[in-house]
Design a protein around this nucleic acid. Structure first.
Lengths: 338, 338
DNA sequence: CTGTTAGCGCGTTCAC
DNA sequence: GTGAACGCGCTAACAG
């Protein structure tokens, strides 16, 4: 089977490669008539330009990368939908990479991305990442980056986040208002910006309501969820006075719910739980889990838009283009924009 | 800033481009000494080969495509994890495309993929797809394809599925054994192989237990979930004798749960629900939702393995390489391999 | 062991 | 309006 490329098209039409190329790009300097001829044959033979040859020549790949911890998490799943949507509309392709929250893997991925494979990168950093040289180095090789959700404050570029501090504050206030005396806070990693902000909201809300800060009530989870269940269980057994839990991530909220059931603690009479989550089924739980829900799909879309704008203009993306979207609190009796 | 490519490396080292290229590929025909020199400089300058130039030359992109309906569904999210894992281990990149179950979009995506961008494709067809010319045409341009979950029987290649018929049968038997008299079946599209197989399992199980087939009990859902809720509600109101629901997909199971609550039907006393789902939180519902869970992560891994094996060997992938994995039934009191 | 040469398919000069 | 020629960065065949 003969390959269908510019050369073969040109031969079949008795034209030069250059003319065919121009015709397909709708160049002004080619007669309408030949344009038609070329297009007709191209359509008939199902011609598709070789993406790599084109990328090589134009030094532009029409591809963006997405680096996230994992996708088996409703937030990222929804975000990808938004990203793909925007990318597709602009004719971009989407490469996906998972770090599994592993620093080494993140570095290796970023390293590979320096081969000109992508025109821009959307990223949510791994929870273990503390050194950002690899990210800066990618940026230095002219690959624009936009962070979303788990941002990296040390790198100067646009970031799309939610109002983590405010929602952490409000989540805590929600529990205080519901009468909780001892509110535990569960987070996954405290070198993650989102974790820090939510924690700070928690701390400030407690202080604002005259509670003294009890470090024992703050539990940092680990990667393995089975272990987290154990840790939460220990905490609740050691401190039976805990009557409120604010979970900073979905998994910990679900695990808390689970542990409370195991221990026979009645929700919400004995203990109240509120957690960040994008799980639709959370509202089906009985009692429903009170959640802080991030607009994941919109975050993906906005991040992609900012990135593509920067890519097309070939201009550096500035921190001033950052966006903060609002989370929503879905409670048993209330739904509120945070 | 001077570009760091083979040429610049060669100049700096007083070597030819070819030698540098060979050295970096650890070719046998280059002295250990020069290899060292080359590698040292490459590492220092952070050289990364241009992926597109390489792909163009070798006619090989080290990239696979994944085309799925959407990712905001636990099954596909988990499958992607498996795919990415296998791909990464073999040095492959993963391009992702979402069809949103839209035929036109699927055709357009497949069309674009013919530009040599990918070495192979993993695919779960859109529920609206009835014509497979676009898929066959891609296959004709030498792009190996492996289907997973939502396969396309008309195309000759390997398929990775779960035992849909058997689990549909068992799910139905589960409800029969639990004493249900009128069992409704909810499915999303009956031109999808998985839907058909699950439905057939349902029908055969009913027949085996001497039940007469009542077409009114079979409800075909639509794309919009809000509408599905309405449809399910109507069905349950029209047929209050329904005391069992077997939902073929996650969303319909969740929606059923929702509607039953709205209508004040008590689960599982009045009505029992069983559904295909990969939602971990399903077990937290009270009462827990009985689910048939597909090994999504493994399906992704196996499909990717078969595809990459074919890609590396540059040989056509045969239907005989297909795999059928087993789903698991998670019930209130039992957990069983189907 | 190393260098020279010739493309991969495409887009862009520069001629005519 | 069209064609010839060059080069993007890299790999592979052929010399020496």
């Amino acid at each position: 089977m003969t390959p269908v490329n510019l050369k073969s098209l040109a031969q079949a039409l008795n034209l030069s490669i250059a003319t065919v190329s121009r015709a397909l790009q709708d160049s002004h300097e080619v007669s309408t008539q030949t344009k038609e001829r070329v297009r007709a044959l191209a359509a008939e033979l199902n011609y598709q330009p070789n993406a790599y040859a084109s990328s090589l020549r134009r030094n532009l790949s029409k591809t963006i990368g997405v680096v996230i911890p994992k996708v088996a998490n409703h937030f990222f799943a929804l975000a990808i939908n938004g990203i793909e949507e925007v990318a597709r509309q602009s004719g971009y392709h989407v490469l996906i990479y998972l770090t599994h929250d592993d620093y080494e893997r993140e570095v290796s991925i970023i390293q590979h991305l320096k081969g000109g494979r992508i025109d821009g990168l959307l990223m949510s950093v791994a929870s273990g990442t503390e050194d950002f040289a690899h990210i800066k180095s990618l940026q230095d090789s002219n690959v624009p980056i936009v962070f979303f959700d788990r941002v990296c404050v040390e790198v100067s570029t646009a970031k799309v986040t939610t109002n983590d501090y405010e929602s952490g504050y409000q989540a805590t206030e929600h529990l205080v208002a519901a009468g909780c005396e001892q509110i535990a806070h569960l987070l996954i990693s405290n070198n993650l910006s989102i974790g820090r902000n939510r924690l700070q909201g928690y701390l400030d809300a407690l202080q604002a309501h005259g509670r003294i800060h009890d470090p024992e009530l703050i539990l940092q989870g680990v990667m393995d969820n089975q272990q987290n269940v154990g840790l939460i269980r220990e905490l609740l057994e050691r401190r039976p006075d805990i009557d409120g839990i604010f979970a900073s991530v979905e998994r910990l909220a679900i695990s808390s719910y689970h542990v409370c059931r195991q221990l026979g603690r009645v929700i919400p009479d004995d203990i109240k739980i509120i957690g960040f989550s994008n799980l639709e089924s959370a509202s089906l739980l009985e009692p429903p889990l009170t959640t802080i829900t991030q607009p994941a799909y919109e975050i993906g879309k906005e991040a992609a838009k900012i990135l593509l704008r920067g890519v097309e203009k070939k201009k550096a993306i500035l921190p001033s283009q950052s966006m903060v979207l609002e989370s929503t609190l879905f409670g048993r009796e209330s739904t509120a924009r945070v």
